[in-house]
Each structure stands twice: as C-alpha cells, then as structure tokens.
Lab assay of single mutants.
Amino acid sequence: TFTSYQLEELEKVFQKTHYPDVYAREQLAMRTDLTEARVQVWFQNRRA
C-alpha cells in the first residue's frame, strides 16, 4: 500500500506523462522512498 503523499507524487507525474523514463522513475522513487521497480509497476497498473 502507498501513503497519500506517495500517491499524490505518483499521480502528479502520471498527469505529465504515462511513460516516465528511467531517470524520472528514479527521481520519483527517491522522493517517495519507494524502489524504482515499485514505481515502474505502479505506472504499468495505472495505465492498464
């Protein structure tokens, strides 16, 4: 599960791009204290 802060950050990036590159995902992962893999999976699920 994600915190409301994490979801907010993820959604913010999703609004800009549905396909963030690895750099964007790593920045987001650091900001949200998630792994890059978790961020990647979240985007895959969000796009589905």
Rank of each mutant, 00 (worst) to 15 (best):
P20G: 02
Y5M: 08
V13R: 02
A24T: 14
H18Q: 14
P20R: 01
Y5P: 04
V41E: 15
Q40H: 12
Y5R: 09
A29H: 02
A24F: 14
Q15G: 07
Q40G: 09
T3W: 05
K16W: 11
R31F: 07
E26W: 12
V13A: 11
F2W: 08
R38G: 08
F14P: 00
A37H: 11
L34R: 00
F14H: 01
N45Y: 10
L34F: 01
R31T: 10
E11T: 03
S4M: 11
Q15K: 10
V13F: 08
V22H: 13
D21P: 05
T35Q: 04
L28Y: 01
R38T: 15
Q6W: 02
D33W: 06
T32K: 00
V41I: 14
T35K: 04
F2C: 03
E36G: 05
R31E: 05
R25Q: 07
Q6L: 02
V13Q: 08
T17R: 04
P20V: 03
E11K: 03
F14Y: 12
E8C: 13
W42K: 00
Y19A: 04
F43S: 00
V13H: 06
P20D: 01
Y19C: 10
T17S: 11
A37M: 08
L34W: 14
L10N: 00
Q44K: 12
T17E: 09
Y5C: 10
E36H: 07
V13K: 03
T35I: 04
T32C: 13
V13G: 04
F14G: 00
T35D: 10
R38Q: 15
R47F: 03
A48V: 09
E26A: 11
T17G: 05
E11C: 05
R31Q: 08
E9V: 06
T1V: 11
E36R: 05
L10K: 15
S4Q: 13
D33Y: 07
S4Y: 09
L34N: 02
D33M: 11
E8I: 10
A37W: 14
V22P: 11
D21W: 02
Y23E: 11
E11F: 03
E9S: 04
T3N: 08
P20F: 03
R46C: 05
R46G: 02
T3S: 10
R25D: 01
Q6S: 02
R31G: 04
L28W: 00
N45H: 12
F14A: 02
T17Q: 07
E26L: 15
L10E: 02
N45A: 12
R47P: 02
A37Q: 10
A29L: 05
V39F: 02
L34I: 06
L28T: 02
R46F: 01
A48Q: 11
L10W: 01
M30W: 08
E8T: 08
A29T: 05
R46K: 09
F43G: 00
H18D: 05
R25C: 09
A24V: 14
A24L: 14
D21T: 08
M30P: 00
K16S: 09
D21I: 03
Q15I: 13
Y19K: 03
F43A: 00
T32Q: 02
Y19N: 06
L28A: 02
D21E: 15
V22I: 12
Y5T: 07
V22N: 09
T32L: 15
L34Y: 01
Q44Y: 11
R25F: 08
F2T: 03
R38H: 10
R46V: 02
A24D: 10
Q44A: 10
V22C: 12
H18A: 12
T35M: 04
R38A: 15
Q6D: 02
L28N: 00
P20T: 01
R38P: 01
L10I: 01
L28E: 00
F43Q: 00
T32H: 04
Q27P: 15
H18P: 15
V39C: 03
N45E: 13
V39Y: 01
R47Y: 03
R47N: 06
Q6C: 03
E36L: 11
L28P: 00
A29E: 03
F14W: 14
F2K: 02
V22L: 14
R46S: 03
K12Q: 06
Y5Q: 09
V41N: 14
Y23S: 11
E11Q: 04
Y19R: 04
E9A: 06
M30K: 13
V41G: 12
R47G: 03
K12F: 06
E11V: 13
R25E: 03
L10R: 00
V39Q: 01
T1R: 11
Y19V: 04
L7S: 05
L10M: 14
A24P: 15
D21C: 06
V41S: 14
R25Y: 07
T3E: 06
A24H: 07
T3F: 06
F14M: 01
V39M: 11
T3M: 05
H18N: 08
V13I: 09
Q15P: 00
R25K: 05
A37S: 09
T3R: 04
F43W: 01
E9H: 05
E9F: 05
H18E: 08
Q44C: 12
Q27W: 10
W42L: 01
K12H: 15
N45M: 13
N45V: 10
D33A: 11
Q27T: 07
P20S: 01
V22R: 15
K16P: 09
Y5L: 09
M30Y: 12
E36D: 08
A48I: 11
R47Q: 05
E8Q: 11
T1A: 12
Q15S: 13
R38F: 12
A29Y: 04
Y19P: 15
A24W: 06
Q15W: 06
Q27R: 08
Q6Y: 01
L7E: 08
F2E: 03
L7Y: 05
Q40T: 09
M30F: 10
E26T: 12
R38K: 12
L34H: 01
R47T: 04
N45T: 08
T35F: 03
R47E: 03
R46W: 02
A48T: 08
A24S: 09
T32W: 14
Y5N: 10
Q27V: 09
Q44T: 08
L34C: 05
D21V: 02
K12G: 05
S4I: 12
Q6V: 05
R25W: 04
Q44P: 02
Q6F: 15
L10C: 04
T17D: 13
T32Y: 04
T17I: 06
L7P: 00
T35V: 04
K16I: 14
E11L: 05
E9N: 04
Y5I: 07
T17Y: 07
W42S: 15
Q40C: 13
A48S: 09
F43I: 01
T3K: 06
R46M: 06
Q44G: 05
R47C: 07
P20E: 01
A48G: 10
V39G: 01
E11N: 05
Q15V: 07
Y19G: 01
R25N: 03
L28I: 07
E36P: 13
V41D: 15
T1Q: 13
R38M: 15
Q27F: 13
L34P: 11
H18C: 11
E36I: 11
R46N: 03
W42E: 01
T1C: 11
K16E: 15
Y5E: 08
K16H: 10
A37P: 07
D33S: 11
E8M: 13
E11M: 15
W42A: 00
V41W: 15
R46L: 02
R46T: 03
Y23A: 12
Q40D: 15
T1G: 13
Q40E: 14
E8S: 10
T35L: 06
L7V: 09
L34V: 04
K16N: 09
V41C: 14
D33I: 05
V41Y: 13
L34S: 05
Q6T: 03
V22F: 14
Q44L: 06
L28D: 01
M30G: 11
P20Y: 03
Q15Y: 08
Q40N: 14
V41K: 14
A24N: 06
V41M: 14
T1M: 14
P20M: 03
F2P: 04
M30C: 09
V39D: 01
R31S: 06
F43R: 00
Y19H: 08
L28K: 00
L28M: 03
R47H: 05
E36N: 05
A37L: 15
M30D: 07
T32F: 07
R38L: 14
M30E: 10
M30N: 13
W42P: 00
L7H: 06
E11P: 01
N45Q: 14
T32P: 00
T1I: 12
Q6H: 02
R38V: 14
R25I: 15
Y5W: 11
F43E: 00
L10Q: 00
Y23G: 07
Q27D: 13
R46Q: 05
T1K: 10
R46P: 01
A29G: 08
A24M: 14
E9Q: 09
Q40Y: 13
E9D: 02
L7G: 03
Q27K: 08
V22D: 10
L10F: 04
E36M: 15
T35R: 03
E8Y: 10
T3A: 06
P20W: 02
Q15A: 12
Q15R: 10
Y19E: 04
A24R: 04
V22M: 13
Q15E: 10
Y19Q: 15
L7N: 11
Q27H: 07
R31K: 10
R38D: 15
E9I: 06
A37T: 09
E36S: 07
K16G: 07
V39W: 02
H18R: 13
F14T: 00
F14I: 15
Q6K: 01
F14E: 00
Y23P: 06
T32G: 02
A37E: 13
V39H: 00
T35Y: 02
T17F: 07
A24I: 12
K16R: 12
A29C: 11
Y5G: 06
W42C: 03
A29F: 04
D33N: 14
L28V: 07
A37F: 09
A29Q: 05
Q40M: 14
F43N: 00
R47W: 04
M30S: 10
H18L: 05
S4D: 09
R25L: 15
R46H: 04
K16A: 11
A37D: 12
Y5K: 09
T32A: 08
V39L: 08
T17H: 06
V13M: 14
A29P: 01
D21S: 11
K12P: 01
H18K: 10
L28G: 00
S4F: 09
A29I: 08
